[in-house]
Design a protein around this nucleic acid. Structure first.
Length: 111
DNA sequence: GCACTGACTCCCA
DNA sequence: ATGGGAGCCAGTG
């Protein structure tokens, strides 16, 4: 009810994002079994507003930025939340290469 | 039931 | 780097 099973997968995935890390909509979509359905993730999160239990703020777009208009209440909240978890905003953007979920490993290999 | 919109992403000019 | 177009699925009028 309220949410389709698909959403549950997405929400679960979001909930699995390690603290101090962030992920992208596309990433979540793929990991939850819906490649190219980034919008579904957004819709799912939006629909799941009912659940403060989901760390939706750990989800950012592929540009490493928040998907809300700058200055928007949600933007501020999300940003603050991330900062509190140790995520650093670099010029208004997050370094996915460093905080992206799963990217950190790649980075280690690359360095 | 159709059409538009939206917390997106990718690809090409 | 920037902008436009297509693709994806659900929610809403």
């Amino acid at each position: 009810m309220r949410v389709n099973p698909k959403y549950l997968a997405i929400l679960e995935m979001v909930a699995k994002i390690p603290k101090g890390n962030v992920s992208t909509y596309g990433e979540i979509a793929s990991l939850s079994g819906f490649p190219r359905c980034a919008r579904l993730v957004g819709t799912a999160l939006r629909s799941d507003v009912s659940g403060p239990r989901i760390p939706w703020y750990r989800v950012v777009n592929s540009q490493g930025k928040l998907s809300f208009p700058i200055g928007s209440p949600k933007y501020k909240i999300q940003k603050q939340r991330l900062v509190e978890e140790g995520v650093v905003f670099h010029k208004g953007s997050i370094d996915l290469n460093q905080y992206g979920w799963g990217r950190d490993l790649d980075k280690a290999l690359w360095s």
